[in-house]
Simulated assay, not measured.
Amino acid sequence: MFPSLTANTEADRAKEARTVVRDALDSLVASANEAGWSTREIVVAILEAGRFLEKANAADPDPAEDPAISDIAREQIGHGEQYD
Rank of each mutant, 00 (worst) to 15 (best):
residue 49 A to H: 04
residue 73 A to S: 00
residue 58 A to G: 02
residue 22 R to L: 11
residue 68 A to Q: 13
residue 64 A to C: 03
residue 57 N to T: 13
residue 63 P to R: 01
residue 49 A to N: 10
residue 66 D to L: 03
residue 67 P to E: 06
residue 58 A to L: 09
residue 74 R to Y: 08
residue 26 D to T: 08
residue 75 E to K: 08
residue 53 L to H: 01
residue 74 R to C: 02
residue 30 A to F: 02
residue 44 V to T: 13
residue 67 P to S: 10
residue 52 F to G: 06
residue 29 V to M: 04
residue 23 D to W: 01
residue 81 E to F: 13
residue 29 V to S: 03
residue 75 E to W: 09
residue 23 D to G: 11
residue 72 I to A: 02
residue 24 A to R: 04
residue 82 Q to K: 07
residue 63 P to C: 02
residue 40 R to K: 04
residue 80 G to Q: 04
residue 70 S to M: 14
residue 75 E to D: 14
residue 76 Q to R: 12
residue 50 G to M: 06
residue 79 H to F: 15
residue 65 E to Y: 01
residue 49 A to C: 05
residue 39 T to C: 02
residue 31 S to R: 12
residue 76 Q to E: 11
residue 58 A to I: 03
residue 22 R to Q: 12
residue 80 G to T: 07
residue 31 S to L: 10
residue 74 R to A: 15
residue 65 E to N: 11
residue 76 Q to K: 08
residue 36 G to W: 05
residue 33 N to A: 10
residue 60 D to Y: 07
residue 73 A to Q: 10
residue 26 D to R: 11
residue 57 N to K: 14
residue 36 G to D: 05
residue 27 S to T: 14
residue 78 G to Y: 05
residue 41 E to C: 03
residue 29 V to G: 00
residue 28 L to H: 13
residue 50 G to A: 03
residue 32 A to T: 00
residue 48 E to R: 12
residue 38 S to N: 09
residue 42 I to N: 08
residue 36 G to L: 03
residue 49 A to G: 03
residue 52 F to A: 14
residue 40 R to C: 00
residue 69 I to H: 04
residue 35 A to W: 07
residue 42 I to S: 11
residue 63 P to Y: 00
residue 48 E to N: 11
residue 57 N to D: 05
residue 33 N to E: 15
residue 77 I to M: 13
residue 46 I to W: 08
residue 57 N to Y: 04
residue 47 L to D: 14
residue 27 S to Q: 14
residue 47 L to T: 14
